[in-house]
C-alpha cells in the first residue's frame, strides 16, 4: 500500500522535473506554479507513504537503503518547499525535482522488505534519532549546494555582462548568499547531532563511543570541513563566490560519505547494506 504512494510521489516528482526543465528552456514569464504544484502533490503522497510504512511496521522505517534514500528525498523536497513558499523560484525547483526523482529511482531499486531478522542493535530508538539527524544534515547541505551552483552561475553571467533570460529567472546574488549563510549553521548543527547521537548509540550498543568505522571516519572528515566553512564565514567573512564553491565541495564530500563509503567499505554501517542485498524471494 505504501509502495503505491511511493510510486505516485516518484511520478509527481518526475512530472515536476519535466515541467521545470522545459520551463527553463522556454521563455515564459511566470513562476512556473505547475511545477511547484506537482512537487507539492508528490510531497503529500511521499509523506503518506512514509507514515503508512511506519504504522505498518510499528517502528520508524529506517532499516533499509530504500528507507534511507526515501527519507533523504523527502527531506530535500520538504526543505525546498519551505524555501519556495517564501520566495518562489523555478531554477531551484528545476534542481530539486530531478534530484528527488533520481533518489526515488535509486531507492526503488532496493527492496524495502526486511527479509532477514533485524540485527538487534537496529531495534533501538537511537536508530531513528541518529539517521534523521544525519539525513537532515545531508538534505540541508544538498540545498546549500544548489544555492551555491546558482550563485556561481548568476555571478558569472553578471560579471561577463550576459544579461539574458537565465539572469532574470535566477535569484539575486544577495538571496543566494543569504541562503548559504542561513543553511550552513543549520546543516552543521544537524551533522553534529547526527555524529553525537551515533556515538551515544555506539556506546550503548557496543560499549565504546568511537570505533573508527569507515563511515565514522568520513563523517568526521566532513564535520571538520564544514566546521572550517563555518569558521571562514563567521570569523573571516568569506562570502559570495568562495562560500558558494565551498558549498559545492562540501556537498561532494557529503555524498561520498553518504553513498560512496557504503559501497566501498564494510563496517558497522553495512548493516544497512546487508538488509539491502537480500534478494526478494
Amino acid at each position: 500500500m505504501h509502495l503505491i504512494f511511493f510510486k505516485i510521489a516518484a511520478i509527481f516528482y518526475l512530472l515536476a522535473s519535466i515541467v521545470y526543465v522545459t520551463f527553463l528552456l522556454r521563455s515564459e514569464n511566470s513562476k512556473c506554479l505547475y511545477g511547484f504544484a506537482f512537487i507539492l502533490a508528490g510531497l503529500v503522497a511521499h509523506t503518506v507513504s512514509i507514515v503508512h510504512l511506519f504504522v505498518a511496521q510499528g517502528f520508524f522505517p529506517m532499516a533499509t537503503g530504500f528507507d534511507a534514500l526515501s527519507l533523504f528525498a523527502w527531506l530535500v523536497v520538504a526543505i525546498h518547499t519551505t524555501i519556495q513558499f517564501r520566495d518562489p523560484n523555478p531554477v531551484l525547483g528545476a534542481m530539486a525535482a530531478p534530484i528527488a526523482t533520481v533518489l526515488m529511482l535509486i531507492a526503488s531499486t532496493f527492496s524495502y522488505q526486511i527479509t532477514q531478522p533485524i540485527v538487534p542493535v537496529l531495534k533501538s530508538w537511537w536508530l531513528p534519532i541518529h539517521v534523521s539527524f544525519a539525513l537532515a544534515g545531508n538534505a540541508v547541505f544538498t540545498i546549500m549546494a544548489m544555492a551555491g551552483a546558482m550563485y556561481i552561475f548568476q555571478e558569472r553571467l553578471i560579471k561577463r555582462k550576459k544579461i539574458g533570460r537565465f539572469h532574470r529567472i535566477l535569484p539575486s546574488l544577495e538571496t543566494l548568499d543569504k541562503l548559504n549563510r542561513q543553511a550552513l549553521p543549520i546543516g552543521f548543527f544537524f551533522l553534529t547531532l547526527g555524529i553525537i547521537s551515533g556515538a551515544l548509540w555506539a556506546s550503548s550498543a557496543w560499549g565504546s563511543y568511537w570505533n573508527w568505522d569507515p563511515k565514522e571516519t568520513w563523517s568526521l572528515i566532513t564535520w571538520f570541513a564544514y566546521a572550517a566553512m563555518v569558521h571562514q564565514r563567521l570569523a573571516l567573512g568569506w562570502r559570495g563566490k568562495k562560500a558558494a564553491m565551498l558549498a559545492l565541495a562540501g556537498f561532494a564530500l557529503v555524498m561520498f560519505t553518504f553513498i560512496g563509503v557504503s559501497l566501498l567499505f564494510v563496517g558497522h554501517h553495512s548493516f544497512v547494506s546487508l538488509a539491502l542485498r537480500v534478494v526478494p524471494a
Binding site: 521563455s27 553578471i158 533570460r165 539572469h167 532574470r168 539575486s172 544577495e174 538571496t175 543569504k178
Partner: peptide, 22 residues
C-alpha cells in the same frame, strides 16, 4: 517574453542592482 526584459538604461541598471544586492 515580449514584455519581460528591460529596455531603458536606467531600468537595466536598477534590474541589475536588484540581482546583485537584492
Amino acid at each position: 517574453g515580449v514584455a519581460l526584459s528591460a529596455v531603458s538604461i536606467a531600468y537595466v541598471a536598477v534590474e541589475l542592482a536588484k540581482k546583485i544586492l537584492g
